[in-house]
């Protein structure tokens, strides 16, 4: 097992632990919650096949579902995110293409690039999550405000995690 695979595995274990034990118990104003575990899916290597990413995303989401008592919504949202990931990556491809030995981190492709990449994918993930859970458009305004705040929370926590764990570059 090479170093990169190991880093990814550790990342999944760490983020899932944080999500399940810590973040699942932090619900701001009883309504807003960050979902940091999506970062692990975002940072999977570029060379990994689409099917493999979706499979991993499903397992990750399912795991979160089991511990949150939500029935399949995290699994769905994660697979959807894994599905749109290559599309977003394709739209945002930098001038000289992706380096398959580099992770999708702001340190490698720039902050602006990373913000676009993570905002799109996280927004789609959260939208699917919230709409699927409600399964009705009765409280649409409310759901959208929840979506907006959740995306902001996840995004800021995601950047914080990256800055806290990245070595000086």
């Amino acid at each position: 097992m090479d170093k990169r695979t190991l880093v990814n595995i550790i990342r999944f274990v760490a983020l899932l632990t944080i999500q399940i034990l810590l973040l699942n118990n932090i619900v701001l104003f009883g309504y807003y919650q960050p979902y940091l575990y999506v970062l692990a899916i975002l940072l999977l290597p570029e060379e990994m096949s689409k099917a493999m990413v979706m499979m991993i995303a499903f397992l990750t989401g399912f795991f979160v579902d089991i511990f949150s008592g939500t029935y399949g919504i995290h699994a769905f949202a994660s697979v959807l995110m894994a599905f749109v990931r290559p599309i977003v990556l394709g739209e945002l491809v930098p001038f000289d293409g992706y380096d398959k030995y580099k992770d999708f981190l702001p340190g490698h492709y720039g902050m602006k690039w990373f913000l676009k990449y993570s905002l799109w994918t996280v927004a789609i993930h959260h939208l699917a999550l919230i709409i699927l859970e409600a399964f009705s458009f009765a409280n649409l305004g409310l759901l959208f405000s929840q979506w907006f705040v959740d995306v902001l929370l996840t995004e800021s926590l995601l950047l914080l995690t990256i800055f806290a764990t990245s070595r000086n570059q």
Partner: peptide, 13 residues
Amino acid sequence: VRNSTQWQHNFFT
């Protein structure tokens, strides 16, 4: 042992 308030359909254990 587990509770949620943020969803439209909340359950607790």
